[in-house]
Nucleic acid binder design. Structure first.
Lengths: 187, 187
DNA sequence: CCGCGATGCGTACATATGTACATATCGCAG
DNA sequence: CTGCGATATGTACATATGTACGCATCGCGG
């Protein structure tokens, strides 16, 4: 019998995880189903329950992947800064640039925050994420300042995604300057 | 025939809306169903489709109610401040107190942010909310400072809800002082 | 080369869900 | 008091969903 082409798929698991984030970004956790993910990942439905015990397990692992990826990029971007001024500029970039604060990432963050409230394992992941961010900032700034900057990055990113006239680069730079205590022209 | 007690329920609609927020807070939008809401509001299932055309309509209206309520409280708290120093303290309160930044409200905010990304009507609601907050802050601070404070309130509230050792009142006060430019002892 | 554990695949099934609808009851304007 | 429009209520039903399971097929160690 001519059986249909059967694939050998070494990284199918990873592809499912990526597809999960895609589906969550597009439909929200509320609209995320095994079947939708399977369609995006281009795998049969049976693969879902084979690779992941339950949908919650899948979501948990996908969100963990997201946090690790984003935290790594964050750290990387800050580690590339040599001087304090460069570090400030890196912070501005993280808020303003289309590298991390992309609509997709913001959206996924909201979904993660909401979901994590009901999955203890993810609370740990979020704490780890925040810890890494703070550690990266503390390589350039005092602990208190790092904390303030971390929160400000979060708040500004969110508000910029809602605002009809988002704060521009200059304004963000001025705010960072106030928090770091470095003198800078205020608008 | 002795018919079961049939209730006359003038504010049933409002009760359903409140129940919706309760259910969302407990189960997330993903776990919000007509039947769960009906159970919490103590109304029969049929009432759901009678008072609200669809589940999405219901969620949209409930989130609008949330935004209006929270924005009103925010404005009220800031309007009560007479001096600039009192305004700063009000901002600190909004972050640290158990009045607005309660776990429930934070959680509902995450759900709203995520949900609003897919419902255009709610984007307007969020913009209105942010506008009101900013207006309230601008009664005491310059526009740029108001923007920074608004974002910082958001970011600090979120991070405080995740952090194992949340920033204390003193630390929050110091951050606010930096943003407002008012001199204050730094820790 | 061969066997076996890992992986892939389709399908079945109980359940939960959104929504429609027929009917019953109530408040109140005239 | 009397309709009548608004509201209440229970139920039906098509559909989507999570998960289980049996079987097919493959990679690879011995």
């Amino acid at each position: 019998m001519p059986t249909i082409t059967r694939r050998h798929d070494p990284d199918r698991r990873a592809r499912i995880l990526r597809a999960t984030l895609d589906v969550v970004a597009e439909h929200g956790v509320a609209g995320t189903t095994h079947r939708r993910i399977a369609a995006v990942a281009d795998v049969p439905l049976g693969s879902m329950t084979y690779h992941f015990a339950s949908l919650d397990d899948l979501l948990t692992e996908a969100f963990t992947l997201l946090a690790d990826t984003v935290a790594a990029r964050f750290t990387e971007r800050l580690a590339a800064a040599g001087t304090r001024a460069e570090a400030c500029e890196a912070v501005v970039d993280l808020v303003v640039d289309d590298s991390w604060a992309t609509p997709r990432n913001l959206l996924l963050s909201y979904e993660l925050y909401a979901y994590a409230a009901r999955v203890p394992a993810l609370r740990g992941v979020m704490q780890g994420w925040m810890g890494k961010s703070r550690a990266a900032l503390e390589q350039h700034f005092a602990p208190g300042t790092a904390r303030a900057l971390d929160a400000m990055i979060e708040g500004l990113s969110i508000h910029r995604s809602v605002d009809l006239e988002p704060a521009g680069r200059a304004e963000v730079r001025a705010i960072v300057a106030r928090l770091t205590g470095d003198a800078l022209a205020l608008p």
